[in-house]
Design a protein around this nucleic acid. Structure first.
Lengths: 195, 195
DNA sequence: GTTCGCCTTCCTACTAGTAGGTAGACAAAC
DNA sequence: GTTTGTCTACCTACTAGTAGGAAGGCGAAC
């Protein structure tokens, strides 16, 4: 029994894929209107202002991401697997083009001209992701799976930057395989056997 | 004897800083008009269409970058120094906020909805930068300065991704120091003494 | 069990303002 | 005397957002 997505969910879904493609200024209420066959004014009924729509969208994205990362902690056996599943998730998103970029990475690039309510939430997502990576690396070190050159929080920032930079290169050069070509070696280098 | 910048150069300068802040859709002819005290129509005299303006801008940026990277090869003694000067350049750009992001990295994030003439040029810049980094790493290996885990071209892609990802993190978290905190260790890991 | 009022959702029709772009006049420079 | 650069004035299309109303669901009052 699959419940049909509500109108506001459909609006957020479309808006998200439009943001992934072109950022905050890269979509309009008219674009969403065309995509889901509803009038512009009806979208304003659900989300009075654009900044609010995107703020809700980022909240939803952050919560989904947090839930996904949490379930990775519970399902994947070791920190090494947790990291591997995380990048495998993005690899498949990029390779089947279902979501070829992180919404928050996209918005972060426009940080300087984002409404405050959106900028705040994007920043929170970066902090959450960095914290998750830090804890996974930390656990890996404690279990003797990883040998890090730096403190876990520094190494986590390096890894996060690699992931976002790899997404960007894959997009810039039109080569989805570039993502894993960049990120794969990066996590391989963290393994205890590397030195 | 310093020649005064021409109007078209001033237009490109302003457009560049606006793109760095908000991307292709983040600026308008009216914004440029306000910034340099000239009418919108006068900008259209120099650059009939927006896509053309940005294409010229990216051409100029790519040529400046190529010249800068070339002079780094000539001025810096060793490949290790060349790499160091390259990231020092970006560190200072980010820390004094003169240019806190790479124009082409910014545009690359919007690749999917860029006019063809712009997308083409952005992609070319990525290829140029990757090629430069590859040749520097290659030279470093030949001189026994670097020990790489991967082929130079792969390692160059990883380094480029790190640089762009570090810019993004610095911006997202509002912490300019994060750039060097991420990229510094990354190039330190390439040095022959690391293993 | 039907009428009443409220709420949700969507609609048509509109606003003020901004987008990129054009036409043509004018003045100075070559 | 033509080219170059700027201007005023304008255009069409699109932007986010608003006003006001129609259709239907739902629970309580009668």
């Amino acid at each position: 029994m699959k419940s049909v997505a509500s109108t506001s969910d459909k609006i957020l879904d479309v808006a998200q894929s439009l943001i992934v493609a072109g950022g905050y200024n890269g979509f309009s209420y008219a674009d969403i209107s065309d995509a889901i066959g509803i009038r512009k004014a009806s979208i304003h009924h659900h989300f009075p202002a654009k900044a609010e729509l995107v703020a809700v969208l980022v909240d939803r994205y952050t919560m989904q991401a947090q839930a996904g990362l949490q379930s990775l902690l519970e399902q994947a056996a070791s920190p090494a697997d947790q990291l591997q599943f995380y990048i495998d998730y993005w690899r498949s998103c990029i390779e089947n083009a279902s979501q070829p970029f992180c919404v928050c990475a996209m918005l972060a690039s426009e940080m300087q001209m984002l409404p405050d309510e959106v900028a705040l939430r994007v920043r929170a997502h970066f902090r959450n992701l960095a914290a998750w990576l830090t804890s996974v690396l930390q656990s890996g070190v404690e279990q003797g799976l990883f040998r890090l050159d730096r403190r876990p929080e520094e190494q986590a920032q390096m890894l996060m930057a690699s992931v976002h930079g790899a997404m960007l290169s894959a997009r810039a050069l039109g080569d989805p395989g570039l993502f894993i070509a960049v990120v794969g070696p990066e996590i391989a280098g963290l393994r205890a056997s590397s030195c």
